[in-house]
Design a protein around this nucleic acid. Structure first.
Length: 693
DNA sequence: GAGCACTGC
């Protein structure tokens, strides 16, 4: 490109321009494929209109005529709601009438609803009640290429359902990348799963526009792949000639090069986390001060999930005159948040990924090289409004060495919740369940062991009744589910309900603006108790419902996250409904003690102790002992654990503790939500797990 | 002294 003189050490490489044909051209072909085959794989770029148009085509073609519903699943709640709103507008109805959505805590559907958007996790929940998902004539799984845990489980369940409903159910899998063949092969089943030796190439398999579907061997009677063009502009991709030593420095340098040498247009930089982003924003601010006052200015903005919605909104605002916006973002901008007006993407080539170590039971969070699919997705963010450029801060050889796609979550997660859910759906033999990608055996074994030790599974790995079935129905992780279900016998169900709701907020309870860290600490101390974090969280909730629920002032004064607290109220109410359905009554009078910082006694027993005993009955696998140096060791003794700085145990003395969560980041392993217990309780509540020594 | 992104009738 003639105007490219940014820096000699970038090598240009052209991206294939996408045409701008609308999806309407494919309408007849799409309907033909969906009518003819049980499974249709739709490969559609961003802006192809697949999510909004396909459900409408289906509805108009009569797929809802006998009162059936079209379901479209999304991996994220926001996507389900925003797409529903847009489609309702196009159809010309109110949301919740012909077009609706359903996400946890928000069911905006009615008897009139024909097109329903929902999260894939929620559709899986529906399968617990209606195992064949019989109210749906078509189920479209959107964004399947993201391969989230729920999407993968749902795909396996849908394949099973399809065998029972071969004639009246249609499945559409929509995916942005060319993993289409994998999805189709997955659904092809046993008869025709072996592609014939004369199998056609992928290009031939894809049914192109008006040329009509090809009736070759691949896909057999199962399905076809159709490709839709997106409304994307070409993006020039440029690589480094030699690797960068420090990608944060290199990113800052590249941003300045773009700023001084390239035409107007905002910049999006992909980094891995908050710390890097803050560093980069700081560096840009400092260097921006040296810009000539009359030269174009530069405005750095951070973007990560930990920011409040208000702070995230800044990135959508138009920059002041004569100012270029540069957004430093985590992976959140790769799929979850779309920003218009980006002409330049700077891709450092890294992402922080979660993984679960089945040997230690510890989750890790580490910066990892991205996949080619990710790199393509990131580059595409530069071509949404006009032709753009993507600067990859790695060499073309490094790019070639990247894996094709990110390892799906099902291969790197704690599978205890997944397996519990599958068992509840009547899938007993996990080893023979048809996963699109099988999880490693070690992960499955570890999960089965944990579920067995919690009493959710019997000696034959069958779900126990009622404990196992009830645990599966509760929307909390297995250890917390067990804690909740044993709470009645400790006389502290109301309190454990609150603790379950608060811990599921995931550390978002306290919240502070810049420079108010100390004040936040002081505020937190007001709720703190000797026993640890769990009862402290209980106190926070109690104070919130008695003083703070009506307005956000109480939260503001106490450095609490109002949105998170409101969510805790919803979660608690939902969990309570489940427990009452199980016939467990929740006595709320006991929990209204105004001063939990004083030891509570109920019926001669110390309430705080009952709560801690109850927590031990569910979290015995998460036990640790404090060492003289203030760190913790797990029971096996091998792993050094640190109390997370947000924990009360960060600077207090303890002996034995249980914790809600453990995660390794960088070089340290942190435990969060930590509560003191007695060693003998471990043996008392988990005699099989802790052999008496 | 500090955690990527999601999610559950």
């Amino acid at each position: 490109m003639a105007d490219f003189d940014l820096s000699a050490n970038f090598i240009p490489s052209l991206h294939k321009p996408a045409s701008l044909l609308p999806i309407a051209r494919h309408r007849q072909n799409l309907l033909y494929l969906i009518e003819t085959f049980p499974v249709t794989i739709v490969v559609g770029q961003t802006g192809s209109g697949k999510t909004t148009q396909i459900p409408q085509y289906l509805e108009q073609a009569g797929w809802c005529s006998d009162g059936k519903v079209i379901a479209v699943t999304q991996p994220r709640r926001v996507a389900a709601t925003t797409v529903a709103v847009r489609v309702a507008e196009e159809v010309g109805c109110e949301v919740g009438k012909e077009v609706g959505y359903s996400i946890r805590f928000e069911d905006v559907t009615s008897a009139a609803t024909r097109i329903k958007f929902l999260t894939d996790g929620l559709l899986l929940r529906e399968a617990l009640v209606d195992p064949l998902l019989s109210r749906y004539s078509v189920i479209m799984v959107d964004e399947a290429h993201e391969r989230s845990l729920s999407t993968d489980v749902l795909l396996g369940v849908l394949k099973k359902i399809l065998k029972r409903r071969p004639n009246d159910l249609r499945i559409i899998i929509s995916s942005a990348t060319l993993q289409a063949e994998d999805f189709l092969r997955f659904f092809m089943g046993d008869e025709d799963s072996q592609p014939k030796s004369n199998a056609l190439s992928l290009d031939e398999l894809i049914s192109q526009g008006s040329s009509g579907p090809i009736d070759d061997g691949f896909g057999g009677k199962t399905g076809r792949i159709i490709s839709l063009e997106g409304r994307m502009y070409p993006v020039d991709v440029l690589y480094l000639e030699s690797p960068a030593e420090n990608y944060v420095d290199k990113a800052v340098q590249t941003v300045f090069d773009i700023h001084t040498k390239e035409p107007d247009g905002d910049i999006l930089v992909f980094l891995t986390g908050r710390e890097e982003i803050d560093t980069a924003v700081q560096a840009i601010s400092e260097r921006a001060a040296n810009l000539h006052p009359r030269a174009q200015q530069i405005m750095p903005l951070p973007l990560y999930a930990g920011l409040s919605t208000e702070q995230q909104m800044y990135i959508f605002e138009e920059a002041p005159e004569n100012t270029r916006k540069v957004i430093f973002s985590t992976n959140i901008a790769e799929a979850s948040i779309t920003i218009d007006g980006i002409l330049y993407v700077v891709d450092t080539g890294f992402v922080k990924l979660r993984a679960y170590n089945p040997l230690t039971g510890i989750e890790t969070l580490t910066a990892t090289p991205i996949s080619k699919a990710s790199a393509t997705q990131r580059a595409g963010r530069a071509g949404r409004t006009k032709p753009g450029k993507c600067f990859r801060l790695y060499t073309e050889a490094s790019y070639q060495a990247l894996s094709e796609a990110t390892i799906p979550e099902i291969q790197r997660s704690n599978l205890a919740p997944v397996i519990l859910q599958l068992k509840a759906l009547g899938i007993d033999n996990i080893a023979r369940f048809d996963f699109i990608t099988s999880p490693p055996a070690e992960l499955v074994i570890r999960a089965l062991e944990l579920l067995y030790s919690l009493g959710a599974l019997d000696d034959y790995a069958k779900l126990t009744k009622p404990l196992g079935t009830r645990m599966a129905e509760l929307a909390v992780e297995p250890m917390m589910a067990k804690t909740l279900l044993s709470a009645p016998s400790f006389g502290c169900l109301s309190e454990i309900l609150t603790i379950a709701a608060m811990t599921s907020l995931g550390g978002n309870v306290f919240f502070h603006h810049d420079g108010e860290k100390k004040k936040m600490e002081t505020a937190r101390r007001k709720f703190a108790v000797e026993e640890g974090d769990h009862i402290t969280l209980l106190n926070v909730y109690q104070a919130f419902i008695t003083k703070g629920q009506k307005g956000s002032k109480f939260c503001h004064d106490n450095f609490l996250n109002f949105k998170a607290m409101t969510r805790a109220v919803s979660i608690r109410a939902q969990l309570k409904r489940y427990l009452e359905r199980f016939g467990l009554s929740v006595d709320e009078t006991l929990s209204s003690n105004p001063n939990l910082q004083k030891p509570l006694t109920v019926g001669g027993k110390d309430k705080g102790e009952q709560i801690r005993r109850c927590l031990t009955s569910g979290f015995f696998a998460h036990a640790a002992k404090m060492q003289p140096d203030g760190t913790f060791r797990n029971v096996a003794g091998g792993t050094v654990l640190h109390a997370h700085p947000s924990s009360l145990m960060f600077n207090r003395k303890a002996d034995w503790v249980i914790f809600h969560e453990v995660m390794e980041t960088g070089t340290k392993t942190f435990i969060r939500d930590v509560t003191k217990i007695e060693k003998r309780w471990l043996v008392e509540y988990a005699p099989d797990f802790y052999k008496i020594s």
